[in-house]
Design a protein around this nucleic acid. Structure first.
Length: 300
DNA sequence: AATGCTGACAACCGCCAGATT
DNA sequence: CAATCTGGCGGTTGTCAGCAT
């Protein structure tokens, strides 16, 4: 048998959140921490669906959120990441500390799309608009061209689901000394290490995932942080990575951090290797434009 | 000043994979 | 092992402010 429903939708508020609701939610999470969204609304005295509470917290109330305009650097980073990842907003958000997937998604749709079109670039395929033959669906089966030569992503920061987005919400916020793998001490794109990134994973799933850290770096590097961290490794692997990029039709080339054991040689879809899937190629790894994301170990 | 249009963004919806019972 | 729920994601919609007419 399964569990009981998450909330009674008949007795929940909808629409914009009031300041009082926000305050209740913030106060509650400060006291009890994130998690258990199902019971949170009732416990916090909110007439909201747990899902709604989670969204409100993640997107607007979290203390580590960076509000305000996107910088040019962030713009370019988003564009580059989108060219690699497609509409994987959570993955992209994982690379922009303080930004949420929703925020980036909105920003993409309202600003960057236009910006790219203005540059004569198709925002979906990242190819020149003029190159798209009329009537032919853009990049139906081939990946977008890569405007970058190197990107570096730490797997643990890729996806909020895996403790990414620079935020590790834990079941309880009171200091539980959950040791983190050294690999989580990745600096942010601004070159600083945030507290949030040092927080423990928020679920058993994530703890397990962190415990069995993939220790993989997508070494096509944008951010100075992991990029710098990767410098030395790059001196060893960059050529290989670049050559792999060139010889490989797909953008994800995973390098092994020096000192870690090289492992599998099989080609596996990216998200599966990040822990969100059990294996094989999944729907997530193929975006609408046919963009295919998988990684292959360099040793293979 | 009134009206309509457009852009920005907060919030919702539906779906999925994994977890739980 | 099947049924069911949870947490999370991407896509879409609703609302409102600012601007143009």
């Amino acid at each position: 048998m399964g569990r009981s429903p998450c909330c009674e939708k008949a007795h929940t508020n909808k629409g914009a959140w009031t300041k009082e609701e926000d305050q209740r939610l913030v106060d509650y999470i400060r006291l009890h921490g994130e998690g258990c969204w199902r019971s949170l609304p009732k416990a916090a005295g909110l007439l909201r669906c747990g899902k709604s509470c989670r969204l409100r917290w993640i997107n607007y109330l979290r203390p580590d959120l960076k509000r305000g305009n996107f910088t040019d650097e962030e713009d370019e980073l988003i564009i580059k990441l989108h060219s690699l990842l497609g509409n994987k907003w959570s993955l992209i958000a994982g690379r922009l500390p303080g930004r949420t997937d929703n925020e980036i998604k909105n920003y993409w749709n309202t600003h960057i799309k236009r910006k790219l079109i203005g540059r004569g670039i198709d925002p979906q395929t990242h190819r020149p608009l003029s190159s798209a033959a009329p009537g032919v669906p853009p990049a139906a089966t081939s990946p977008p061209s890569l405007p970058v030569t190197e990107i570096s992503l730490i797997s643990s920061s890729l996806d909020r689901k895996h403790g990414g987005s620079g935020y590790y919400g834990c079941k309880k916020l009171e200091p539980k000394t959950v040791p983190l793998p050294e690999d989580n001490h990745c600096t942010t794109s601004s070159g600083t290490t945030t507290d949030e990134e040092l927080k423990p994973p928020r679920s058993r799933q994530q703890q397990a995932q962190c415990g069995s850290e993939l220790n993989l770096e997508l070494s096509i590097g944008l951010a100075p942080s992991c990029h710098e961290l990767n410098r030395n490794a790059s001196s060893v692997t960059a050529n290989t990575a670049e050559s792999k990029l060139q010889e490989h039709p797909y953008p994800f080339v995973v390098t092994q951090t020096p000192g870690t054991a090289a492992a599998a040689t099989a080609t596996v879809c990216l998200c599966c290797q990040l822990g969100s899937r059990s294996g094989g190629m999944c729907r997530n790894c193929q975006s609408n434009d046919g963009f295919l994301g998988y990684y292959t170990e360099l040793g293979s």
